[in-house]
């Protein structure tokens, strides 16, 4: 895997920078260059997302590819961000804690490493949002 493939996604993966269409108000994460609603009539600008949201559904991965095998079991979820868009990400928590509707917040973590090139890549994971946040 070439470094550029990882580097070009740093704003989105590290800081949850997505896009917004100024015509229809549609919000998109990850970023898109074309609004799927307005298509050629859309006007896309950058938009940062807070990263807080709620678990729509989740799984606990026991069998993973070589990149993630050492992390198993881990919780993977579809998260609806407070602003609306949904994304797929890991939740750093005890697998027994995970539940649909759970509120989460973002944390910066190592995501994985490419075995052949040895490149380590980072990005956003999530953790349960507790009342007295640490």
């Amino acid at each position: 895997m070439a470094v550029a493939r990882l580097w070009r996604h740093i704003p989105a993966r590290y800081n949850l920078i997505g896009t917004e269409c100024q015509i229809c108000g549609g919000l998109y994460f990850p970023p898109r260059t074309t609004c799927p609603t307005c298509r050629r009539d859309g006007k896309i600008i950058e938009r940062k997302f807070k990263g807080t949201g709620e678990v729509v559904t989740y799984t606990i991965i026991y069998s993973a590819s070589s990149t993630f095998r050492r992390q198993t079991p881990y919780v993977l979820a579809i998260i609806r961000l407070d602003e609306g868009p949904q994304l797929t990400g890991q939740i750093v928590c005890n697998p027994d804690e995970a539940e649909i509707g759970m509120k989460v917040r973002p944390i910066f973590r190592k995501l994985g490493e490419d075995g052949s090139s040895g490149i380590i890549y980072y990005g956003t994971k999530f953790t349960p949002l507790r009342e007295a946040s640490k």
Partner: peptide, 10 residues
Amino acid sequence: REWEGFMGAT
């Protein structure tokens, strides 16, 4: 791959 696989989705 970029937004599911890289996040650990199988």
